[in-house]
Amino acid sequence: MNSATDQPVTDAPIHVVLIIGSNREGRFGPVVAEWLLSRIRERDDMEVDVVDAADVRLPTALSYSPSAEVTGELAKVTPKLADADAFVVLTPEYNHSFPAPLKNLIDWHYTEWRAKPVAFVSYGGLSGGLRAVEHLRQVFAELHAVTVRDTVSFHNAGAHFDDEGRHRDPAAPDAAAKGMLDQLVWWGRTLKEAKEVRPYAG
């Protein structure tokens, strides 16, 4: 028992949603996503679901009274986001920032992000997508989410994976992924336990 709150501290797995942020034709994101999913599935402290921006067709014009078609699209993704304890956002870098479909997916939701942790995996050219991550940190701060400190970044990502989707030199990215996911689990459990004691009222 936690002496401060008399609430049980649990080691149960947290429910993580991996968000694939690009829908560009010929995108490299699924390769990185499969690499990351293989690392997540090796762990017993996380359960994972996937939301892929390429599978969701939401209009850029937000509406408080969405059409039946839009409601159907939201039904594909909103329950998954709402049920999540934590998120990993996988993003490329387009023109020094993150893709429009990812921003649109984020903007169609609000309470689903609140008081939950978000980790980032990025890929791109020389910057490895890190400029996209820095922009995303600002967006999620506005949504009352907590972004974890460590990231996983792949510069010139296509050159680092073979034709089977395996990283050619896995030691460094595997270590980075472990550190990031360890932080995500800590934040996911901590915030979940805190909300059970006192609902977030920010």
Rank of each mutant, 00 (worst) to 15 (best):
L136I: 03
T147K: 03
P170T: 07
D162P: 10
D85R: 09
A84N: 00
F98T: 00
V89G: 02
L130Q: 11
T78R: 11
W186M: 09
N2T: 06
F98L: 00
S65A: 13
R57E: 05
V146T: 10
A75Y: 11
L105A: 00
R131G: 08
V50I: 12
A115P: 06
M1H: 10
T78A: 07
E34C: 02
S65G: 10
N104W: 00
E193W: 14
N2R: 12
A132L: 02
E196V: 09
S63K: 09
S22G: 05
A132R: 00
H144V: 05
R41I: 07
T111Y: 12
T60A: 02
F161Y: 06
N156Q: 12
D174L: 00
D85W: 11
L62Y: 15
L18D: 02
A194P: 15
N104P: 01
G125R: 11
L184N: 04
V197H: 12
E93K: 03
G179H: 11
V185P: 05
F154R: 00
M46G: 04
R149A: 04
G202W: 15
N104I: 01
T78F: 05
L184Y: 06
V89T: 07
W113F: 12
V146R: 07
L18K: 06
P13T: 06
G165Y: 14
A119W: 08
G129M: 01
A68D: 11
P199A: 14
K80Y: 03
G26R: 06
V56Y: 07
A132V: 02
L37P: 04
L136M: 06
D44R: 15
M1F: 08
Y123R: 00
T151F: 05
R166E: 14
F87N: 00
L102F: 03
A4K: 14
A68V: 09
R39N: 10
P117Q: 10
V48I: 14
W187G: 00
Y94A: 00
K116D: 01
F154A: 00
V56P: 06
D6K: 13
Y94V: 00
A141I: 11
P30W: 15
E69P: 01
L36W: 04
D107F: 03
G202C: 08
T71M: 12
P99W: 01
D162G: 13
P59W: 15
Y200Q: 03
V121Y: 05
K116P: 01
D6E: 13
S63I: 06
V88R: 03
R114A: 14
L126N: 14
E25K: 10
P79N: 12
L105F: 02
Q183P: 09
D49P: 02
E164D: 15
D182R: 13
P66F: 09
G26N: 07
V16I: 13
A171L: 06
A175E: 15
N23F: 10
R166G: 15
D6F: 14
A54Q: 04
G165C: 11
Y110M: 04
H135I: 00
A33H: 01
